[in-house]
Design a binder for these strands. Sequence first.
DNA 1: GTTGACCTTGCCATGATGGGATACCTATCT
DNA 2: AGATAGGTATCCCATCATGGCAAGGTCAAC
Lengths: 141, 141
Amino acid sequence: MNLVTIAQASAATGVSAKMIRHYESIGLIRAPVRTENRYRHYNEADLHDLGFIRRARDLGFSFEDIRQLLDLWRDKGRSSAEVKAIALRHIKELDDKAAQLAAMSRTLKRLAESCHGDARPDCPILEALDKPAPAGGCCNP
Amino acid sequence: MNLVTIAQASAATGVSAKMIRHYESIGLIRAPVRTENRYRHYNEADLHDLGFIRRARDLGFSFEDIRQLLDLWRDKGRSSAEVKAIALRHIKELDDKAAQLAAMSRTLKRLAESCHGDARPDCPILEALDKPAPAGGCCNP
DNA sequence: GTTGACCTTGCCATGATGGGATACCTATCT
DNA sequence: AGATAGGTATCCCATCATGGCAAGGTCAAC
């Protein structure tokens, strides 16, 4: 059966032992078998799930999404449409978030460009944070 | 002096009353004067600071950054270089984060494109999450 | 004098992760 | 056998920004 300890499972999957226990506590993975001394021992299927979770997390999926994806993976009669729907929704979230960050960056870059960045105290960045009404004719007419 | 209650300060600045109290508790803003009944009352300078904070938060600055920006704003002998340095560092953080999200989105889009998205169970998205080694010749040679 | 709207403090929750404390188990070295 | 080292268990706390809820005080209007 090739049972491994939590540290070995961690090394094999790249998920910290701390997180492995956490996933168990929130029901994302099944509780593994315990030896007499109450140590957790993981089998191949457990390791697969942990790897699956890590790769999904690397793609930015939330635990709730991962829970569904894992369920779909286990369900051999799933429809790929369900998986794709989750992915497309997540892609939209990622893109929205990225666009938000890009907008902040753009605004800030514009301000930073017009800032001398020397010993003088006057600074358009502070002025922008200062102004009572950020809306106006300058940006979104 | 035009003193206003916390709800009015909230309405005027767009910062929730909850957050205003929180900012006070972490020392981001000064404790306002209290009336006899212990109600907080904010003056013009307080409102300015709250507006400043909200605009800085809208640009994604952390509280620690905002603390420094507020200090710089109050210091009339500041050098704009200091402000610009904070802004440039933050711009880099924003861009890094956006790039990270974009990379996730790109990977996921590639997978989603090759997924039928119909009633059939086979799905490249699940396969990608499945595979033991995500590194390989397909992406980063 | 009651109702409703506002204010106060304090605790808990999020999401994903890390840190630390304390205690137990096991293996190795002296 | 005793000491030392290291892995494991559980539990609590912290992050960061924000919201919710509860219990109680205060004020104005009806």
